[in-house]
């Protein structure tokens, strides 16, 4: 337990020391998405019977919490290849679970901060959405899934450059295809089914449904729970791969 606390506390202290800069940087891309697609492109658009902006905000929350959760991999890379702090963890009498969970919760914490920033920005725009416990559960599960994948990829890669490759091929396409900007349901079936395999599609579906005040999509919730568990196991298994 102390091992988990040590790893997580380190991430919290890093966030704390960088907080103003970090909040500012969290606000940049969501603001751009909201301005460009919400106010600019989608001002007169509606999706279903709702203004496009109300469709967009939950999608941006899902995409942003995914990116910030996954972004823990950058911190781990810096700790591993630049600061070499990772060796402190490897030489410490802590279990791989303690390390993995500490880093995943570091990613989840970032994801929550970025979500709060987006909610603060959208509050100014006066949007009619519900932000209840299941909304935040969705953010949590989504961030957990991607933080665990972030930890896994950080353990498996051998350099910074490899990491950019993973982000470009997996994360960026998911932002655009995983239900952030347009409803996946409106696509033809051949395109819809592959996109339903993306974790982010389920996260944005869950987060959007509860933000609309609709019933909780239980299937998507279950998918995220299973993926979170699978991601955790993958991350756990990958830690020993980083020992040479």
């Amino acid at each position: 337990m102390r091992g988990f606390l040590a790893v997580y506390l380190r991430e919290l202290l890093i966030i704390w020391h960088r907080l103003p800069r970090m909040l500012l940087s969290f606000s940049v891309s969501p603001t751009l998405y909201l301005v460009a697609f919400g106010f600019g492109l989608g001002k007169n658009l509606t999706v279903g019977d709702r203004p496009y902006l109300e469709f967009l905000v939950p999608g941006v929350v899902a995409a942003s919490s995914m990116m910030q959760g996954f972004g823990i991999n950058v911190e781990i890379n810096v700790a591993r290849f630049y600061l070499r702090i990772f060796e402190e963890f490897q030489a410490a009498p802590i279990s791989n679970w303690a390390y993995v969970l500490g880093e995943i919760f570091g990613g989840v914490t970032r994801a929550f901060l970025s979500t709060l920033v987006i909610l603060a920005i959208t509050a100014l725009a006066g949007i009619n959405l519900h932000f209840g416990p299941v909304f935040f559960l969705g953010v949590f599960l989504n961030a957990f899934v991607f933080a665990s994948l972030g930890v896994t990829s950080a353990m498996l890669i051998r350099s910074h450059a490899d990491q950019a490759l993973v982000t470009n091929f997996i994360i960026t396409p998911m932002v655009f295809l995983g239900g952030t900007f347009f409803p996946v349901e409106d696509l033809p079936a051949w395109a819809r089914w592959p996109l339903k395999l993306l974790p982010l599609t389920h996260a944005s579906h869950l987060i959007r449904s509860v933000a609309y005040g609709q019933a909780v999509p239980v299937f998507s919730l279950l998918v995220l729970m299973v993926l979170a568990l699978a991601g955790l196991c993958l991350a756990y298994l990958s830690v020993d791969r980083a020992r040479d």
Binding site: R2, G3, L5, A6, V7, L9, R10, L13, I14, H17, R18, L83, R84, I85, E87, E88, F89, A91, A92, P93, I94
Partner: peptide, 30 residues
Amino acid sequence: RRLAGLVPQATNLDLELTVWENLLIHGLLF
């Protein structure tokens, strides 16, 4: 690992954290 202390060749401190915080994290890890 509990018995051993390691001073590695590369200075692997957390540059953004304070001196005290570096020792605190190490203590919790052990």
